[in-house]
Design a protein around this nucleic acid. Structure first.
Lengths: 209, 209
DNA sequence: ACATTTTTCGACCATTGGTCAACTTTTGTT
DNA sequence: AACAAAAGTTGACCAATGGTCGAAAAATGT
């Protein structure tokens, strides 16, 4: 395990440069320059440009994952509340990272796509187990009535991730709101909970900015 | 509007080359060579490599979209059946296009990501209106009980697209099966339909290969 | 037959991701 | 302290890429 300062310096540099630009438009030399080190050093720490990127995704993803795992054990809190907390954690960590809209005036519907997709992938696969466990507890406790806990966890994560990261499938704010309301309604009916009882989930699904 | 033969030739070439490789590893010269034309000609028909790619996505997407639009008008068919038909159309058109697994032996968990994502984006935004309309009809007819037709359409499309295109969030076949079963169950309970009544939806959700 | 527009082309250019051998710094050993 | 081995750093360098361009070749019009 090599020098972690430089390693993080490189990640910082890429993160900074990633603002409103996609990976392709950022050169390795530029990353090196921004990090204040020689280009060669970059390849001492990372095997490829892609790898830097991947490491960055992973770094930004650490915290929400931990939160989720911890929360899985807190059985004294209501499962839905814990769900809400997980969403919150994901949301806040990702917003700092993903929210950069593509340069406003440029007709750039294209992508920092890789970043978003990788983030989504990580989020779903990593958080799913914790969320599944929570749902399972909710089922045991009689607060959730549903036969496919893992599936439910995944469905919720997928929809939330896709809709809250409004760049995979960009849509106007009202659409996001409506889809989330719909999801909550579907969740209420699907898990045998009274209408409106899950409305508090909207608090952690605020659309960015 | 220029010569359409060459235009399609280029698209064909890219489609062929895209088998198991991502865009980055395919050079424009290679596309030209495969298409049997000069490299310069490519830039006569397309402004950039990206644009070729985008056009390819669009071309492969035409048919399912039309199917969906037509189906929206067929009010004599049950809404759920029409849903099933739309999924089928999407599925069959996309499979020819997306199913190429990354080279078997290579530890290449990475991406033809752009392609998949763009496909997903198109699918969701374009099919959503038709599906919403169908759901709305189902609500009027008393076959579906749900307050957010557009949201329901989007949720279903998102989950299906993500799970059936098993490369955005790769997971084992059993997982896919379970998530789809869960979705169907959620749909049944959420729309006030009896358990098992939507099971026939699984037929059009066959996992690829 | 000729002029004009559309299409085709590959040599060419700037820039890129990545390598490498040389150099400096750190660490360990006596 | 003296030395050697290891770890870390560097920018010149390389092959390859996406994209440009002027010129040639087809196609079209008159």
């Amino acid at each position: 395990m090599a020098n972690h300062e430089k390693y993080d310096l490189i990640l910082d540099a890429l993160e900074k440069l990633l603002t409103g630009r996609n990976l392709q438009t950022i050169s390795v030399s530029e990353i090196a320059q921004t990090a204040g080190i020689g280009k060669g050093s970059i390849y001492y720490y990372f095997p490829s440009k892609e790898a830097i990127f991947e490491a960055l995704v992973e770094r930004n993803y650490e915290k929400p994952l931990e939160t989720a795992k911890k929360l899985a054990g807190q059985t004294h809190i209501s499962p839905f509340t814990r769900m809400a907390m997980i969403f919150q954690a994901c949301r806040s960590s990702s917003s700092a990272f993903l929210d950069r809209q593509p340069s406003p005036l440029q007709a750039n519907p294209q992508e920092s796509s890789l970043l978003h997709q990788k983030y989504m992938n990580h989020l779903i696969t990593e958080v799913k187990p914790a969320l599944t466990e929570i749902i399972r507890q909710g089922i045991s406790a009689g607060q959730i009535h549903f036969d496919y806990p893992a599936a439910l966890a995944e469905i919720v994560l997928i929809v939330l991730t896709v809709k809250l990261d409004n760049s995979l499938v960009p849509s106007p704010v009202e659409d996001i709101e409506e889809t989330l309301l719909g999801l909550i309604s579907l969740l209420e009916k699907g898990t045998g909970n009274p209408v409106g009882s899950l409305n508090f989930l909207t608090t952690c699904m605020q659309t960015p900015s």
